[in-house]
Each structure stands twice: as structure tokens, then as C-alpha cells.
Design a protein around this nucleic acid. Structure first.
Lengths: 242, 242
DNA sequence: CGATGTGTTGACCGGGTTCAAACAATGTGG
DNA sequence: CCACATTGTTTGAACCCGGTCAACACATCG
């Protein structure tokens, strides 16, 4: 599951989305800035949004005010799948920095899919990928201690960039400690302490610029940190005895 | 979000899957028993499985032996979406009791979707629903204390049955405490204690038959328990200051 | 009968939360 | 330019929820 094991056809999956949409679908470009909402939970569903650039989070809100970051999304990802079934979006989609999304009417997508098996397959694959990513998030939340969860988070982030052809050694987290903590199911203080420990182990390094820019000397070192945190941290936390 | 607020068209969504598949797709019926694997993570993807009866869990495994129950599935749900993108299943799908699934070649689904907008829409909706359910799981894991998480789990279970026209006052958990705990990100002991506390509050009641059969006097009482656990348990655990 | 798997309960302890204080970064207006 | 407010980050100290370990009850099954 490391970056080098990404299947060849996967490396370019994000690009296929952009190319095919450009060829087959009418869409409107929409430039957004940090904090902008692409859509909000509860509002009527009509559009899917394909990310052309920028980074985004999806946040799930409840009536009683609880909020949970449930996903991070990058170039080539779709925003809005959660709205298809109910006809209303289930989450807020928020831009983490400035970027551009391509908005397409879902009705147009359906029509185009009927005429293009390739596009239909691509949409299925995109939804499938989001389902699989959700499973991985649950795995991380349920089985890893706090420090390892933060390490896994950074590893995922870097791999997401790597699979899109972006540089992974030097990354910028466009999220506050509070947002990261929310996403990982812990408090902002724990995130801060975990990052300090990761830096002390040399598995990440903070840039001079600020506390959100960091360099990753080695992805496999991150993996090593996670594994060591698992075995020395009591060993079998939530294993399933087959 | 209570049981009575389910939209009319949602109540029968599970049935549409079964009806449409029966009309449009060649499939093979497959009877399974508790513990049987419908498919296993890592094996090549070729079939989707529509649940006609029974209850199922999906389990995500890692190379280092960690396992996490990531989803529960009932009549009308599809199993196998997570395999479309990579061409390999990402999870194990395990039967929790005796049931029947309809196995359909994914290639046939694609072909049939091209000729039936209704079926295509239905597949999208099914995937969308699974994405949304994943988001809800993350919300529960990230924002609720242990007791409330167990209460929310039972509420979800009951609502899943209710939306399929099954009785919700009397339910049987076809899972061990360890499985439930794994699903909810806690230990089996905590599950046991949480259930006892729920029973003491009268929000659930154990049947004479065994420790897995329980009755739910009132769904709204479960909601009340969750809300009270939130406000008296320190109040704002992971809220997002808008 | 013992063996095995499951569930319950108690006592202890530790990782992570909570509370608090101080610091850093970035505006904002006079 | 500085005073000031605001937001984000770091660090410390105390507390507590939930994990860990252990013992026991209770089934089912050979």
C-alpha cells in the first residue's frame, strides 16, 4: 500500500475524470477560496462538482451542533456523491485553499453516462474509491492510537498528492490543529503533541515558514513509526481473532 | 432523522433494487450461513452481490493483522462496491446469519445500465447511500462518548430494519460483544457495560432468551439518551465552532 | 464431564482530554 | 509605527473515561 505500489492505471485515474468531463459534459468553472462552501448539507442536490485544483474538506453536521470532518478531497475527486440518494447533500463541502471546481448538473451526468460506457465506468470507479477511502478512515480511527493516527493522516495526505503527480516531500496542511484533530477524532492539543513527537523522531520536519509547512524525509519511515507504535503500544489493539 | 421522517420514496428503495435486478439482470442465488464469506479482501473483483435476506458485515483488514468492521448491511443493500475502482475487493464481506444474496456480474450491470436509466440511477443511489452511511459512522466514532455510541448503534440498527418494513421493537444482534466493540471503536467490556447502563435507564430491555435479543420500548428514548450523554458528559466534545 | 466460546463484573491504570497559561502569527485601526 | 485584538499553536498539570487484566458465570458441545 505504499506509494510505489500504485497500479499504473490508478496513477492517472484523476486525469480521466477531468478529460472525459471536458469532452462530454457541459460545466461551469467555479473559483473558490479558503472557507468557501461548495455546497451545504441539507440543501437540494442538483450538481456534482469535479475538483480541478485546490483542497477541500467535507463536514458532517448534526442537528445538535456536532460537526465531524469526514473526508479530504483533491484534484480529480468528485464532491456531492452523498446527495444522490436522498436528493439533498449530506455534508458541507468547504474549500481549504483557493481552487477551482467544475460544476455539472447531475441530470447531465446521467444522460451522458447512458451514451458513454467509459464515463459510466469512471463515475462508478470514483464513487467506489470514495467508499474505499471511507473504510480506510474507519480503520485508522478504530485501530490506531493517537500518535499513529496522526502519522497515518500525513502518510495518506502525501500519498494522495503522490498519486496525482504532485510533490510529496514538501507539503502544506491547509488545516488548523483543531480541524485535523476533529478529522482524526482527537483534540487539538493531542495533535500538537503528536506532531512534536513525530518531529522529534525525525519522521517529519517543520519548515521555517510556519507550523503548517512540513517536509517528509521518507514515507516508509512514517509507516515504520505507525508499526512501532502498534507493537509497543500494547500490541493487539482491536485485532479480530480470525 | 427519526424513523417517522423517512421520505416515502426512501421506504421502498431497497425493494426497487430487488425488483429491477430480477427484471433486467441475470443472477445466481446464493444461500449463506453465519460466518460465510461472500468475498474476501484482495481477491479479484467481478461480482456485485445484492442482499435478498440476512445481515452482513464488511471487515477491512491490513497487512499487519488489524481488522475493523466498517459496515453493516441488510436486505436491498449491495456488497462489493469497494472493489470497482481497484479491481479487487477492499474488504471481507461476512454473513452474520443465514441469508441469501443475488450475485450479478459487474460487467452485466454496466451493460444493463446503459439500456436502463432507471437501473443506472438506482446503482448511483445505492452507492451514494453507502457513502452517506460511512459519513454517519465517522460522525458517531468521532463525536460520541462510548455509551452514546452504543445507543446510536442500536438506533441505527433499528432504523435500518424499520426502513425495510421489518419490526423494530424486538431485535436480535447477530454479533458478539467483541464484534460490536470493534465496529464502534471500543472494547467488548465497554460494550457490555454500556448495554447494562442502557438497560438500567430503561431505554432497552433484554429478553429472556439470551443476551443478544433485546426490545426497544422507544426509539426517541434512545435519542434522548444520546443527547443527555452529550450535554452532561462535558458538553462540547469536538464541536465545530462555526 | 471438561473444554471452549461468550458475557459480565470488578480493580487498577494509562493515554488522552480538560483546563489553564503563555506564546506566535496576523491583522486593524489610530 | 505601535497598541491592540484575534486566531492559532505550544506546553504544562490534573483529571477521568475507557482500556487492560483478571476472575467468574453461563451457555453449548464433544
Amino acid at each position: 500500500m505504499n506509494a510505489s505500489s500504485i497500479a499504473p492505471q490508478e496513477i492517472q485515474a484523476w486525469r480521466d475524470n477531468l478529460v472525459l468531463v471536458q469532452q462530454l459534459l457541459p460545466f461551469t468553472r467555479r473559483v473558490v477560496h479558503a472557507g468557501d462552501a461548495i455546497y451545504e448539507g441539507g440543501s437540494p442536490f442538483a450538481y456534482l462538482n469535479l475538483i480541478n485544483s485546490g483542497q477541500f474538506k467535507t463536514v458532517n453536521f448534526t442537528a445538535d451542533g456536532r460537526g465531524q470532518v469526514v473526508g479530504l478531497h483533491f484534484r480529480g475527486d468528485w464532491l456531492g456523491f452523498d446527495g444522490i440518494a436522498e436528493g439533498r447533500y449530506g455534508c458541507d463541502a468547504i474549500a481549504l485553499d483557493t481552487g477551482e471546481v467544475w460544476s455539472v448538473r447531475y441530470a447531465d451526468v446521467l444522460a451522458a453516462c447512458a451514451g458513454s460506457p467509459e464515463l459510466m465506468r469512471l463515475m462508478h470507479a470514483a464513487m467506489s474509491r470514495q467508499i474505499a477511502r471511507g473504510c480506510d478512515s474507519l480503520l485508522s480511527l478504530g485501530t490506531l492510537p493517537a500518535d499513529a493516527r496522526v502519522a497515518d493522516f500525513i502518510k495518506d495526505w502525501a500519498q494522495s498528492l503522490a498519486s496525482r503527480g504532485l510533490r510529496t516531500d514538501q507539503i502544506t496542511l491547509h488545516m488548523t490543529r483543531a480541524e485535523i484533530g476533529n478529522y482524526l477524532g482527537m483534540t487539538l492539543e493531542t495533535v500538537s503533541r503528536a506532531l512534536r513527537r513525530l518531529a522529534q523522531c525525525g519522521v517529519i520536519r517543520f519548515d521555517e515558514k510556519g507550523r503548517r509547512d512540513l517536509t517528509i524525509p521518507s514515507l516508509s519511515a512514517l509507516d515504520g513509526f505507525i508499526r512501532s507504535a502498534l507493537e509497543q503500544g500494547g500490541g493487539t489493539r482491536l485485532p479480530v481473532a480470525a
